[in-house]
Design a protein around this nucleic acid. Structure first.
Lengths: 228, 228
DNA sequence: CGTTGAAAAGGACATATGTCCCAAATAAAA
DNA sequence: TTTTATTTGGGACATATGTCCTTTTCAACG
């Protein structure tokens, strides 16, 4: 983590996300801009909450590790998003580990300052409500989706959500993540990818996957797109 | 649904849940008290949001119906809880169907009134934040739990959560719900119940289940209690 | 008191998914 | 280039779970 002591840039990000009135002016001195490198942890499951972060640039991965050592990826997040919001409200320790996937820029505020300056500030409270309501909605959809559909459907849906007409290729690294996100084993995911490949929907190379037929995948996904 | 035109009772419920300052005084004329009978729908998936409800007494069941006609129970809720909160914030149609399980008392406010009178009222906004943050946390835990554990574990955990030293017997009606909540078929649940029975953890009678050995179930649940 | 029908439980089988381990492919080192 | 280590993919098998249908149980009714 590196602090970017550049007030103008901070303000630019605030403006870019229409957050001008989210933070009261009195909080301004306590806002900082932080840069995280890919792979770096923004916060770790079980630790005490220090800073609440607003993700303004880049992509992070939220995951949890079970007692048995399995990793379950809960989501990938892109701006605008808040990290530490639930913990801030509930006053608990960090629930899930958050890791930078790309270079990530965050606005950070210490939770005590936030409480002091923003707890009576309706625009901030509404901002948080919107963020958390959306989070809940996404999570809720995701739960239903997992419980109602098999791995085939989830994987097809996932491939659609992370690819596009332009970006057709996925690397193996992201495939491993895919398995953990979908909640299946790498082994089984491979099996399903193979069947997709036999159907001509994707092309399997060593270390990557190329989406060939979005229509086919869409059929297989039951018309539902993952977490969108 | 029956309206209870009894202002004192309404105020009593507000006090009982420490919600005295949640609603601004200007909103008071628009608050009503409603009674729902068991089995009655409080709101139905896909309909437009009219009232936002605060559950102050009784128990409701939240569920969703898939395109294929399956029912997935998302949760049971007891006071204090808000119904329609996410839809209110996100300005969307009703996401899930909510049904009274016991006789249920709700405080209802039309969403337009809420917006008019409470949108600048920090105590209300904070109340909502707390409710939704908790909701999210519960949902998040539930998702991880489902993805990480098999039906055995989930069922053991569920039985623990709905029984106690005093209430040891579960009816079949609630068992059917259990299967839908856990996300498995009734058939498979029966299979697992049978194995629990063979282990002496429960006693299976026609139409009901009696918890015999909470310790044993606790072992099977991997020490995790469902949605608690 | 038998008859019939609904609700609940269970059998048989098919399928989905996980685990373990080996083989193929590639990269790294000698 | 050969050898060795590492990563990736896949085979074989075990287990978990779903579907369909039959059996059992119990209760209402004639």
């Amino acid at each position: 983590m590196k602090e970017l002591a550049d007030r103008d840039q901070l303000n630019a990000y605030v403006r870019a996300h229409q957050m001008e009135d989210v933070f009261p002016k009195s909080l301004a001195p306590y806002l900082s801009l932080y840069l995280f490198e890919p792979g770096e942890w923004i916060c770790v499951q079980g630790q005490a909450l220090e800073y609440v972060y607003v993700l303004v640039k880049g992509k992070v991965k939220v995951y949890t590790n079970s007692a048995e050592g399995k990793t379950l990826i809960l989501s990938f997040k892109t701006p605008p998003e808040v990290i530490g919001d639930i913990e801030y409200i509930e006053e608990t320790d960090i629930i899930n580990t958050v890791e930078a996937v790309s270079p990530v820029v965050m606005i950070g505020v210490h939770h005590t300052r936030l409480k002091q300056h923003a707890d009576e500030h309706p625009p901030f409270l509404r901002f948080m409500l919107n963020i958390i309501a959306r989070k809940f909605y996404v999570k809720s959809t995701s739960l239903s989706f997992h419980l109602m559909h098999s791995v085939d459907v989830r994987l097809a849906s996932y491939l659609l959500s992370v690819s596009s007409e332009e970006r057709k290729t996925l690397s193996t690294a992201s495939l491993k993540d895919a398995a953990n996100l979908i909640g299946t084993s790498y082994r089984h995911m491979n099996r399903v990818l193979q069947s997709f490949s036999e159907n001509g929907w994707i092309e399997r190379k060593r270390g990557s996957v190329v989406v060939k037929d979005r229509e086919g995948l869409y059929e297989a996904s039951g018309q539902s797109i993952y977490e969108k």
